[in-house]
């Protein structure tokens, strides 16, 4: 197990290094950062001055190494537009997105895993059809439309929940549902097909042949196998939610990472953009690592040779 963790960890570090290079290159090659900073109507002299001040005239590798060296000391750089340390800006926005993502994934799992299990247990029945319908609807409905529908029903019509802002925990309910619902179909269908396969397998027949109680057979000897690919999928979905919830964050005025990214791209605030890219990529890499470790914990064949 120690060897397995070490190997996965090394791989994760490698992925983070590569993505940091890619993030850096993307931002620096997609336009002249000095020109963007100097703003419209700036003279060539102004741009040259900006280039000099911020060190954009140095070779790229030198700028990159400088950036990484500062990162390793916990210094994400400084946003020239907000005139704040990027680290502080991230610290302000990150918890909002993380809370939203965790709640959304929790909602998605709580809804889709039981539905997937029941659909597999009783295929072609009402519950199977209902969950299929839910999956198709979830896949087909744009998330902004679903979010607006939620807002109208619970915010405007019933007045149960606040429509926007980040004041209290209630603010997170609707965004989490809207964001999580989008991840529901894939998880549910994967759970269902995985369960259908496992329920046919020999070791489940053995468990039944030895008189184990039905829930033991279903949870312990079936779901544990069927959930393994779901763990990997959920990790990717959570990574996606952390980085890609721009639409939902905007609709509900949650000032999270997605919102910040969108704003920063408009302002060409490259220090923030590359920091966000790095943070999201790191989150992805770490989530994949966590998923691998969870799977190894679930299936001894992965960890014990």
């Amino acid at each position: 197990m120690a060897a397995f963790i070490t190997k996965r960890l090394a791989l994760t570090v490698l992925v983070i290094i590569v993505t940091s290079i890619v993030a850096f290159m993307l931002v620096h090659l997609s336009g002249d950062p000095a020109a963007a900073m100097a703003g419209e109507g700036a003279t060539d002299a102004d741009i040259a001055a900006v280039r000099e001040t911020y060190g954009f005239n140095r070779p790229l590798y030198a700028q990159y190494l400088d950036w990484v060296a500062k990162l390793l000391q916990g210094d994400f750089g400084r946003s020239y537009y907000l005139r704040m340390d990027v680290g502080d800006v991230l610290a302000e926005h990150m918890p909002i997105t993380a809370t939203l993502g965790a709640l959304a994934l929790g909602f998605a799992l709580l809804l889709s895993v039981p539905l997937g299990v029941f659909a597999a247990l009783w295929p072609n029945t009402m519950i199977d059809r209902f969950s299929l319908w839910l999956a198709v609807a979830g896949q087909a409905l744009p998330s902004f439309l679903f979010a607006l529908g939620l807002m109208y029903l619970f915010g405007v019509y019933l007045r149960w929940l606040p429509i926007s802002g980040t004041g209290s925990w209630q603010n997170y309910i609707m965004p989490a549902i809207a964001l999580g619902y989008y991840a529901t179909p894939a998880i549910m269908r994967l759970t269902r097909s995985g369960m259908m396969d496992v329920l046919q397998s020999d070791h489940v027949r053995t468990a039944r042949a030895y008189g184990l109680s039905p829930w033991r057979v279903i949870i312990k000897h079936s779901l544990r196998h069927a959930i393994i690919p779901v763990v990997s999928l959920a990790a990717v979905q959570l990574g996606f939610m952390l980085g890609g919830s721009i639409v939902i964050e905007t609709i509900f005025s949650l000032k999270g990472i997605g919102y910040l990214a969108w704003e920063s791209i408009q302002r060409a605030d490259i220090e923030i953009i590359q920091a966000i890219l790095l943070v999201i990529a790191t989150a992805y890499a770490l989530l994949t690592l966590v998923a691998d470790l969870l799977n190894a914990a679930l299936d001894p064949r992965i960890r014990v040779s």
């Binding site: 053995t206 042949a209 008189g211 184990l212 299936d299």
Partner: peptide
């Protein structure tokens, strides 16, 4: 049935490679 299976009647299956749960 559940009381009988494994207790009064037991079964040995063809393929021991797959008949045991690999996770436990």
């Amino acid at each position: 049935w559940r009381k009988l299976r494994g207790d009064r009647i037991a079964m040995i299956f063809q393929d021991p490679m797959t008949a045991l749960d690999p996770c436990y």
